[in-house]
Nucleic acid binder design. Structure first.
Lengths: 215, 215, 215, 215
DNA sequence: AATGAATGAGTTTTCATTCAT
DNA sequence: TATGAATGAAAACTCATTCAT
């Protein structure tokens, strides 16, 4: 059962090489030659496993999301008390990405490609379900649950991208989760007033709109 | 009101064309020909103002950051009560970027280039000083002020990237600021306990470390 | 009579700037911008005096040959005893080009352009007539006078191109002229035997010819 | 007879194509596309063997010098009587270049590039050693051996560049060598007087010096 | 099945020439 | 008449993809 076919194993090797490269530098700075060299296969072999460079890239990103999903799912499988799961997951994700700093770059443009969107969605849903299970956001007036999760993930990304030498994944995980949960609780306590949009200067909106969007 | 030299005006025209293109698609999918066509100048003219394509790109990103900084600075110039400024700023930034959705892509990898890092830093410092002025984070035990700001910006980015058709900048601004401020206040109230890192499975860390970072 | 029109003066200025540049580096490394800058005129002005870059280059080379011709002619105008004139001329030419080392580069490809060929020819004829007047080569059996002159000029070029720090124009002039005249005298003394071509290995010629000339 | 690796053979093919083109027209008039077409390889292949156009050009010139050196060395390997070798070599070089008239253009600016200078030097040394072996120039008072060789090569170049339809390599070889050797012998017979520089008009030197070198 | 040499379409960049001021 | 900003045709070079071995 565990034995992968030699084919699958080589595919994995290539994917791993591509991951390392794509998360380190921009798509167009990674040459197929580089991938082949790193994976220790001939360049032609790459094309036996992935029809184009883009296909390889897409597979790489999907694979990255999948790893995150698995990482998170594992945590959520065991039942614990509220708040505990979220922090464990956060800690785990941060720890996983800690030595793969640039790996996060692969998770960025997730909306462009339908497959990526789906992979991103899967993670969002997972976190969403957890938040709901913990009774945190379900009843918030006017708050979009999906967006609430995205905000949370946004903080995770920021933490990974802008951490400094003294940062520790555990400390950051605790910080982020506490901040987030307290914030969320504040929202639900705030009542209808909480979502009052606040007056916005008509002029500002007008200005923003009159300037041609596309240029 | 201030008359710009013809030179500055043309530079601006080119920058605007480049912005539109670079925020719509990837660097390598934007041809200098495209920029020239859009800016309605000859290709050679591009090179009179920017020595290379990369220089043009860098200038474009710097310009984007500068616009954001100006946007924010304007708000922070007038004194108001706590929370008000932050929300106004957030609303303003969101509104500014609302019709320039992909523009945010330009602000991403800000750490790669020293100039970008500096531009990013300038914005972070601005927000930081505001948070401090409002007495929000200065006294937080164990919380890195810089990181606190990055987390906030991370939510802003997420909001812009993953907003849906029903999202409104004002609503999101209110949501984010409330969540953030409540969370921050919770942290300062939490005391030393708040930053207890929480036990982390030794195995997890070990696993993360033993796996070659580079793969 | 001496007053040149302002037009002629400016033409001269441009030509001088072009000379300095073209003799220092290859044609395609000299930009019209450089010439304009050096001549302290606008780029457009260049085109009022020379229709194209190539025309400017051609004029530059012609001008260089003309300077050499004038230099030589002056010497040949006054009558002296045999050998004296040739050495004086040689000394003069070497001295003239001494500080203009690369200038000689301008005089190279003289066969390509009909005007250059004519200018080159004029100098050759001048030297030729001098050699003949001195009774040196006129009666040589089987020796092409024209070629005899070219061989002499070939040594001049070599002297200028490959001189070293210790070389002095006067010493070289003396050396070259003495070597040349003694050589020439030897030829005329040698009799018909002197020009027996010497057997050439048939194989060598064959080999040279069978290899496609154009490759 | 010696089987070259396919790699070396293709390199040779490219070099040959480049030679033909570069000796026919100026560097900048030879397009990499032309070279590729003539060598019957794809443009990319050119760059697999030579990193830049300039590198290809440099290699072409080096190759030309190398051919000449080999040509000369072969002659000098067998011992013969004085004067014989020099004429044989000259004949051989002239014969070799006879159908490759423009090829000589490749050997021109040999001082610019250190590698070229070395290649040029190698040929000079070869001839130099032959002259010395024949006891021709070693004892010349005040005559720079190196320069003596350069003068000789200067005549060779002139012969190739300015030959006409009736010229024959054997005749020219005989002429040049006789002229040269008689001249050289005259020098050694001339005694110290021979190198008296001859008075030079102070005014001329002054004029040469005062005129800005750079114009 | 695996390889890596060969390919050429596609890009950036240069610079002689023009022309509005 | 003189200028130099603007232009775009032309040229070097790259790299994903193919295919003979």
């Amino acid at each position: 059962m565990k034995r992968q076919s030699s084919k699958q194993r080589k595919r994995g090797t290539i994917l791993q090489a591509a991951s390392a490269l794509f998360s380190d530098r921009d798509y167009h700075l990674v040459l197929m030659d580089d991938v082949a060299t790193r994976a220790r296969v001939g360049k032609g072999t790459l094309y036996r496993y992935f029809p184009t460079k883009e296909a390889l890239y897409i597979a790489t990103v999907l694979d990255a999301w999948e790893r995150v999903r698995v990482e998170i799912e594992e945590v959520f499988r065991d039942e614990s008390r509220i708040g505990e799961n979220l922090e464990t997951m956060t800690r785990r994700v941060l720890t996983f990405f800690w030595p793969r700093r640039h790996f996060i770059a692969l998770l960025r443009d997730s909306m462009e490609n339908p497959e990526w969107r789906r992979a991103h969605e899967a993670v969002v849903l997972l976190v969403e379900s957890e938040l709901e299970r913990e009774g945190l956001v379900g009843s918030l007036p006017g708050v979009d649950l999906r967006m609430a999760v995205e905000l949370f993930l946004g903080m995770l990304r920021a933490a990974l991208l802008y951490r400094d030498a003294r940062s520790r994944p555990e400390t950051l995980a605790h910080l982020i989760v506490k901040l987030y949960l307290d914030g969320i609780r504040g929202l639900s306590a705030g009542g209808p007033d909480a979502i009052a949009p606040g007056a916005i200067t008509a002029g500002l909106v007008a200005a923003a709109l009159e300037e041609p969007v596309e240029d």
